[in-house]
Each structure stands twice: as structure tokens, then as C-alpha cells.
Amino acid sequence: MSAQLGNIVFIVWRESVEALLVIGILEAWLASRDPETRRSGRKWLWSGVAGGILGAIVLAWVLTVFDDTLSEDGRQMFQTAMVLVAAALIVQMVVWMRRNGRTLKRDMETALTGAVERRSWWSVFLLALLAVLREGSETVIFLWGSLAGRPVGEIGAPVLAALAGFAAAAGTYGLLQLGGRILSWRLFFRITEVMLLCLAGALLMTGVGGLVDLGWLPGLGRLWDTSRLLPDTGVFGGLLAALTGYRARPMGIEVIVFAAYWLSIGWMLVAPRPAASVRPA
């Protein structure tokens, strides 16, 4: 029983971490902006979070109630589209933050014109929404399954465990905010940028797996097997896979896409920024 409660704490924390990374970093980034950017940015960010929570509940309900009527491929397409869009948005977000990171914190004359800015805020909104929606719906289904069917007297302990999981997640979020304040902006951004790009890589790997499963991409055979050395399952391996895209038994296509992803990211980070993007408006 207590093992199962510990499990609830861990699962709730783990499912929240991905969304927390995205939201926490965006929030820390916004906190360092000028008051006006901060105000409008927060509005978009937190509407996305709220929409994501609402959507997660609806999605969980749809997935449970209409389970038999949804086709397997349809579900796979939906999930694959979600992770691929999320990965693309994260990369776009990193690029965007990079461009705006250099300008002065306080009196930033934003380089973005009105239209571009609005589009960027839409991305913030959509990214927060997707981040919460994806893992949130699983958390809802998991908690619902863990609570339903229990006698009323036995519901207290798992509810507390779930709350402890959320508290741990909130603590992680607090650490991020603290990091944003204590560390220099440059260092904080370096670290979080790498975390976000790793996460986008992980989402991309999940998406590629989905495309292979749908038959839209060839698998190209298994390249190697390091599952004995470092499995991609279990507490550590599962987290590593979820946050970096590590695969113990990668297929050819996974290796190609992963390598192409990091090569283009590396190129993007090393290549000199076009002058136009930093010119003040």
C-alpha cells in the first residue's frame, strides 16, 4: 500500500515536470522583462495553462468514455501531432528568447513589431496549453483510476499522496524561479535553454516513434542495444528518456532524426545571429 502511495507521489511529480519546465522557464524569462511585456506575457502564458488544465480533463474524459470508438491509428495521429507541434514550439521559443535575451532587461525596446509579437504570444499560449494538456490528461486518468472504486474511507491517503506529488512539482517550479533570480540571466538562460532543447528532442523522438508506428516513416531497423548498460525504462531510465529522448534500442530513423536535430540546433546556436533580428524597432 505505501509503495503504491509513493508511486502516486512520483507519477504526479514526473507527469508535471515537463509542463513545469516549459512554464517555469517562460515565467522566469517574463519576470526579467519590462513591466508591460511581463503583464501581457503572463496573461497569455497563464491562459494557456488554464486552457491546458481544462483541456486535460476533457481529453481524459474523452479517452476514457470513448475509448472503444476511437481508432488506434487516430489516437496515435493525435498524440504524434501533439508532441511534434510541442517540440517545434519549444525550439521556436528558445530562438525567440535568444533574440530578446540580449537586449537590456529594463528598458527593452522590443525588436518585435506588433504583429510578430502577437504571433509569439500565441505560441506561448499554445505551448503552455500543449505542455499541460499532454501530461495532464494522463495524470487525470491515472488519479481517477487510482481513486475510483475505492471505499470512501480509503480515499484520504491517495488524495494526500497526489497532493504531495503536486507539492513536489510546485517545489521544483519554485527552484526554477529561484534559479532565475539568483543566477545571472546569462547563466540561467544557458542552463534552461539546454534543458528545453533536450526536452524538445525527447518530444521529437516520441513523435518519430509515432510516425514509424503509423507507417509514415520507415524504421530502418534496430541499430544497437544498450538496454543492459542503461535501460530506457524504470525510474531513472524512464525519466532520462522522457527528458532527453534517450533510446536503449534505437531504430535507424530515430538515430538519423536525433542527430539531424542536434546538428541543426548546434548550427543555430553557433551561427552568428542575423543583424536584422536584434535591430530595435
Partner: peptide
Amino acid sequence: ALLALLVA
């Protein structure tokens, strides 16, 4: 993708 899910 959403449409595909609904009509698949």
C-alpha cells in the same frame, strides 16, 4: 490530426 481522430 484532430479531424483525422474524429473521422478515422
